[in-house]
């Protein structure tokens, strides 16, 4: 029974991934593919400042996006789990509805909201809160962070919500009976027990952020361009697929190691709390 899906995954996933790894050790001059094994692409990716800058920036943006998204999502998940008594499913459904429109349009609409003559600026100016349009919210890092904090919201809320739901409520009562105030109780009982969900949503948000090239392109301006934009350019206009493959693998390895560190740190935190 398992063999058809396994076979499919092997052909469509394992084989292509193996191919990308091989490709990254090849080189290309316009249309000719040179299949001698070389580390040239990795050397180029490491030594040319542009690639290093883009990779580091992608990592930086991913970490910022993840922090903001998870911090914003946690109180919402907490609210859903501890304050909503009936109709939890309805609340969850309400949260997921905005995310079933075209992803492209959602990103584009943020551009409409954050722009110089955008919704936010005209509203704030109409209300007399600001005198001239704010320019620090579009075509830079902030815009990327806001847009992605929105785009990943349900992926951050749901894992945290699930882990909060699993917390045995009597533990919280016990902490209170033993003299913990609401703050101590939260940091010593609730948060450590919710940690698996927090870690899961951190990874779920961080990994695809590195791979996103639409948001940086639409709202990021030049300061917000990320490594995925460069990978896309190498496969497209620059026509240097081997370099693109090397960049893709380099960024995957870096994100993979950061994810591993976060995962292990989360385990350690939980272990210490128990």
């Amino acid at each position: 029974m398992i063999s058809p899906p396994l076979l499919y995954a092997l052909i469509m996933l394992a084989a292509p991934l193996a191919m990308v790894v091989t490709f990254s050790f090849w080189s290309q001059n316009y249309l000719d593919l040179d299949t001698t094994i070389t580390l040239k692409n990795y050397k180029e990716a490491w030594s040319k400042p542009i690639y290093r800058v883009l990779i580091l920036r992608s990592l930086n943006i991913s970490i910022m996006v993840t922090l903001v998204t998870v911090l914003l999502a946690f109180p919402m998940a907490y609210f859903l789990s501890f304050r909503v008594k009936r109709n939890k499913a309805l609340w969850l459904f309400l949260i997921t509805i905005p995310f079933w429109t075209s992803y492209l349009l959602r990103v584009f609409l943020w551009k409409v909201i954050l722009g110089y003559n955008g919704v936010l600026n005209s509203a704030l100016m109409g209300l007399g809160i600001i005198d001239e349009p704010m320019t620090f919210i579009l075509y830079n890092l902030n815009a990327v962070v806001i847009t992605l904090a929105h785009a990943w919201a349900p992926f951050a809320i749901l894992p945290i919500f699930v882990s909060l739901e699993r917390i045995d409520r009597s533990l919280l009562e016990a902490a209170e009976d033993l003299g913990d105030g609401p703050f101590r109780r939260f940091f010593r009982v609730t948060l450590p027990l919710a940690m698996p969900g927090v870690i899961a949503s951190t990874l779920i948000v961080m990994i695809p952020t590195v791979g996103d090239f639409i948001t940086p392109k639409l709202v990021g301006g030049t300061d917000g361009l990320m490594i995925s934009n460069m990978i896309q350019i190498q496969f497209g206009k620059a026509n240097n697929a081997p370099l693109g493959a090397a960049l893709a693998i380099a960024s995957m390895v870096i994100v993979g190691s950061v994810s591993l560190v976060i995962f292990i740190a989360g385990r350690w935190f939980r272990g210490r709390a128990q």
Partner: peptide, 27 residues
């Protein structure tokens, strides 16, 4: 191992899946 391999695309950035398939098809 097999189950996590089948579920792997859930956590793989889509651009990696796309690029990997493109490279294979090109080859």
């Amino acid at each position: 191992g097999i189950v996590s391999f089948i579920m792997l695309p859930l956590v793989l950035p889509e651009i990696i899946v796309a690029v990997a398939l493109l490279v294979l098809l090109m080859q």
